[in-house]
Design a binder for these strands. Structure first.
Lengths: 153, 153
DNA sequence: ATTAATGCAAAGGATTTGCAATACC
DNA sequence: GGTATTGCAAATCCTTTGCATTAAT
């Protein structure tokens, strides 16, 4: 969920372009992040990384995530703290989106809209705010859960 | 930053209406939250409460915040984690707003817009999502900081 | 009087840090 | 070879919990 489209093709490219060393650990972490199909938290990322290379340490995971965040290559999500205070991460694509978190079933939906883009533009223009990161999260009940218990309050 | 306008006049009223006991500690906490001019974190709230009544314990602060959150009377903010992972709280007013966090000077601006309201409506209608809480936070540089260092990138 | 709410102190989860050892460029 | 990066283990920050005590209704 961001604003500028990353220019490099891969995270590894961005690392070397910045003069950062491409260690074995980083290679593994970047690949996992790039191919992730779901929102990963630090512990999950560590686990997946260790499945490939047992040497990887938790501190390295956090340090790598920190770099990626600062470079604007990943976004950090809270997902409405549905499962504790940990953070989730996703690679930044060209299209920002909103995360809808269902308090009932726990599902996370992604939603994008021209109105969302319009809102960001408006903030930049009317407020003169130079947007770096945007995070919009909505908590409530997804359509499935709403329909399922329409009889209950 | 929410969706429904609270119906009760005061937080204390809401507590008694729900059959919750109005203890001395809660009275103090609710008053502070109601009259707060800035975004409070749990530690700040505890400090202000202790200034009035030294007996108040941290656990009580957290437990009270939890209740208020569940009742939808306050909103929980991250403010882009500008100052660590703690949460900030603000009383829910009728008008939802976006928080703009300046990474440079740390200032938090509040922004509201019909486009924001339109976006929420759209999410509810098109996605069929029953919205309980909305949190939108934007990180970047405020207009003052942008102007101040217009020569630097 | 009953039971919710509190204080205390300890536990918990997530993340960060200092520093010596390692490995990339 | 020089320096960035890592692993380790401890520290830190924020928040939560169990349980005996207190106080609101």
């Amino acid at each position: 969920m961001s604003t500028a489209t990353p220019t490099s093709r891969s995270l590894a490219d961005a690392f070397t372009a910045k003069g950062l060393r491409l260690t074995a650990q980083r290679r593994v972490l970047l690949e996992i992040i790039e191919s992730a199909t779901s929102h990963l938290d630090a512990a999950g990322l560590l686990q997946l990384a260790r499945d490939r290379d047992a040497r990887i340490n938790r501190a390295t995971v956090y340090r790598t995530l920190e770099i990626l965040k600062k470079l604007g290559l990943i976004d950090e999500l809270d997902l409405m703290h549905l499962n504790g205070e940990k953070h989730y991460y996703e690679i930044r694509t060209g299209r920002d989106h909103i995360h809808l978190a269902c308090f009932e079933c726990g599902r996370i939906e992604e939603y994008e809209s021209p109105v969302f883009d319009q809102l960001k533009q408006e903030i930049a223009q009317k407020q003169g705010f130079s947007i770096g990161v945007v995070r919009m999260e909505v908590g409530g009940r997804c359509s499935i859960c709403v329909r399922a218990n329409s009889r209950e309050q």
